[in-house]
Deep mutational scan, measured.
Amino acid sequence: MKVIFLKDVKGKGKKGEIKNVADGYARNFLFKQGLAIEATPANLKELE
């Protein structure tokens, strides 16, 4: 799953980066902790 990092995550990505991560990792950790959001077309447009 592609995500947009909202904060730096050690060993995974830095704020503003778009990366592929495991679905479970994204849903169970990154999204719940507010560290990333899903890289949907709408979210990508907001990032620009």
Rank of each mutant, 00 (worst) to 15 (best):
N28K: 12
P41T: 10
F31Q: 02
K14M: 13
I18E: 03
K19T: 08
D23H: 14
A26D: 07
A22F: 10
G16H: 08
A39F: 11
L47K: 06
G16S: 04
V21T: 03
K14I: 09
I4Y: 09
V3Y: 00
K2A: 11
K7S: 10
K32W: 07
Y25S: 05
R27V: 14
V21A: 02
K45H: 10
Y25L: 08
T40M: 05
I18M: 06
V9N: 02
K10N: 11
E46T: 12
K14W: 08
A22G: 10
Y25N: 06
Q33G: 07
K15A: 12
L47W: 14
K14Q: 11
N28P: 01
G16Y: 08
F5K: 00
A26V: 10
K10Y: 12
E38A: 11
K2D: 11
I37Q: 05
G16A: 02
A39V: 08
D23M: 12
L6S: 02
G24N: 14
E46V: 12
F29G: 04
I37A: 06
K14P: 00
G13H: 12
I4N: 01
P41H: 09
M1F: 08
V21M: 09
L47Y: 15
K45L: 13
T40P: 05
L35R: 02
A36N: 00
A26I: 09
T40K: 05
L6R: 03
G11M: 04
G34H: 10
K32I: 14
Y25Q: 06
F5S: 00
A39T: 03
G11I: 02
L44Y: 06
G13E: 01
E17S: 06
G13I: 05
V21F: 06
N20Q: 14
A42Y: 07
N43P: 04
F29E: 12
A26F: 14
L47H: 11
A36F: 01
Y25F: 10
K32P: 15
T40R: 05
N28W: 10
M1V: 14
A22L: 11
A22N: 13
A26W: 11
T40F: 05
R27Y: 13
K2G: 06
A22P: 13
Q33R: 14
E17Y: 03
A42D: 12
N43S: 09
A42V: 08
F31T: 03
A42E: 14
F5H: 01
F29K: 06
L30I: 01
